[in-house]
Structures are given as C-alpha cells and as structure tokens.
Simulated assay, not measured.
Amino acid sequence: MRAAVVTEFGGPEVVEVVEVGVPEPGSRQIRIKVAAAAVNPVDVGVRVGVFGGAGERLGLGWDVAGTVDAVGAAAGWAVGEQVVALVYGMGKSLGTYADYVVVDADSVAVAPVSVDAAHAATVPLNALTAAQALDLLALEAGQSLLVTGAAGAVGGYAVQLAVRQGLSVVGLAREADEELVRSLGAGRFVSGEVASRSVDAVLDAAIVGESALEWVRDGGAFVAVIPHTEPAPVRGVRTAAVEVSADGARLAELVALVDEGVLTARVAQTYALADVVKAHVRLAEGGVRGRLVLVP
C-alpha cells in the first residue's frame, strides 16, 4: 500500500509517498481503508522535527474517515462499517496519510451520515481538541469566553461547542472572517484590540500566548490548544494546555452534533495522496478556512 512519510526534517518537499506492507490489526484494533485524511498543523510539526524522531521513518496524519476493512480479536466492530477515528500520531511509523491504517478500537466512532468522508475526516482531531479544551476551562453557562483563531478548524468547533454550552462567546479573527465567525454563533466579534480583563476565559486556538492573559479577568481561566504552550498563571488566572486524547465515545457525541447541524465540518480543498506535497505547500501559505483533506 501507499503511505506518506518523512525520513528527514524540512519543508513540504521532504514528504514522500512510499510503498509499505499493509498493517494487520492486533487485539482490540481495527484496520480502516482510508477514504479521507485531514491535513493538520500538527503534521507540519512532525515534518519539521518538533516532536523528535530524527533518523526514523515517521508517518503523517491523525484524522481518518473510511471503512472497517479488518478486525482484531475483541475489537467490537464489523467489516464494512463506516467510521472515523483519531490516531494519536506522535512517533508512529505510519499515520492516516495512507491507503490503510490500524487504529485502537476504542478510538473509533461511527461516521456522520450527513456529510461525506472528506468532511467527516475534519472532525476527530479538531473537534476533540476543542471539546477537551472546554473541559479544562470548566466554565458555567452565562460566563464569557474569547476564542482566538475563531475562524480556524479548532476555533470554529470551539465557538459552536461553547455556544451550545450556553457561554457568551467572543470570536477573535481577521476582519475578513467576521461573517463566518458570527455564522458559527459568536455573539461578539473582534479583530484587533481586546479590552483588558473583559472575559472570564480564553481558549487560545491561535496560540496568541501570554499577551492574551490580559484579556482574562482576575481568577479566570486560559487554555491553549498545543501542549506546553500555556503561559505562567497571573492574577489567579488558571492556565493549561490541552493534549488531545483519542476517545471514541466522546467522538461519537461530536459526530452526533455534526448530524444534528450543531457542528459545521469545513473542507477548504481536497488533494490526492500523490499530491500530499502540494497540500503541505498550501497549508504553509496560510489563510486556509476549513481543513485541507487527502483523499487516497
């Protein structure tokens, strides 16, 4: 089968598509025939060496939508089921940029029926990150939350989930994105200066960092979406960063919200697996609204 990997760190050009053996599922695992795999910033991190692994073959891709192709013992899934999954990809020799991928059975959920595979592939990593970041914030209905990068994939899901929780949401994004951010449910939109200590919490999907703490009231909360990027706490503000974890049960809840129209899965552009370098070049150009998705 084909898989996109890196064996050296660098720009988009270091990603190569190679022929590898089809992986076999072990106990409590399933194999998925990949229909779509989202391209995420974390894949760039793997590609440039942020997470280490020099000299190794590293697979790319954390999101997958596809069809169960084979099952291991006690997997609890059946061949032919349409599914989505998060594959925690740090240090793996194969990721979801491939024709087939093996995943742990408890990381899998039935795919949404209201969208195609490309859109379904944008849900696992981004929606789980948003949901688990909101868990860390532990806000109550009526409290105010500012989401940075509100027009992005994680930020957009965060806005919609926060609104569903009854939070008063302020979306921070570029001025050109105001219509989009408001369509996601943000009650307020800002593109520049934010008043000091004006919100109960910040969900920092854009990794603004320490300066965003000034927007949080004393005793509020701040959560970043990349591990270890949270600033030190000040004025009693709790700070943390989410490290996304695979959770099939939670993913199933998020899939249901897609089918209910609560969450909007957005695809910016699709690419063939053979054009994975082009996808990484486009991601590097910035300004992508929704996810780039590989469709093998």
Rank of each mutant, 00 (worst) to 15 (best):
G95D: 09
D135S: 05
G187S: 14
V110E: 11
A121N: 12
L145Y: 09
A158Q: 08
G192W: 09
S114R: 13
L137A: 07
S191D: 11
L172M: 14
L184Q: 08
G152F: 01
D116N: 13
G171A: 06
L136R: 12
H119L: 11
A131H: 14
S168W: 09
L145V: 14
D135A: 10
Q132V: 14
G156H: 03
A141W: 10
A173L: 03
A117F: 14
G149V: 01
V110H: 14
G149M: 02
G187K: 08
A173M: 07
L139D: 05
A173W: 03
L128D: 06
L167K: 07
A130G: 07
L172P: 03
V159W: 01
G89P: 01
D99R: 08
V181T: 02
V147N: 05
A153S: 15
A153L: 13
V154L: 07
A105P: 04
V181K: 03
L137S: 08
A111F: 00
K92A: 12
A109I: 10
A120H: 01
L184G: 04
Y88I: 14
V154N: 05
Q143H: 09
V170Q: 02
A153P: 02
V101N: 02
A98D: 10
A109N: 11
A158M: 05
A121G: 10
V87E: 11
A151P: 04
A162S: 14
Q160A: 10
V163I: 15
G156T: 05
S168K: 13
Y157Q: 03
A173V: 03
L94R: 11
G152M: 03
A150K: 10
D104G: 15
Q143A: 13
A111E: 06
G89D: 04
G155I: 01
S144W: 07
L184E: 07
L180R: 00
E140Y: 05
V87G: 06
G156W: 01
L134I: 14
L94D: 00
Q160M: 15
A127V: 12
Y100D: 03
S114D: 06
Y88M: 12
R188W: 11
V181P: 02
N126I: 06
A138M: 09
R182H: 00
V102E: 04
S114N: 08
A150G: 14
S114P: 06
P124D: 07
A109Y: 09
A153H: 04
A98E: 04
V87N: 10
D116K: 05
V170L: 14
Y88D: 14
G149Y: 00
L172E: 09
V108W: 00
A98H: 04
S183I: 02
R188Q: 13
A141D: 11
P112M: 05
V169E: 05
D135Q: 11
G187V: 07
G192Y: 09
G95L: 12
L134F: 13
A176I: 10
L137Q: 01
N126C: 14
T148V: 06
L184D: 03
D116C: 05
V123S: 02
A130V: 05
A127H: 09
A151M: 06
K92I: 12
Y157D: 02
Q160E: 15
S107P: 08
G152W: 00
H119R: 15
D99G: 13
M90V: 15
G155A: 07
G89K: 00
G152H: 01
L125G: 02
D104L: 06
A109Q: 10
R164W: 04
A176L: 06
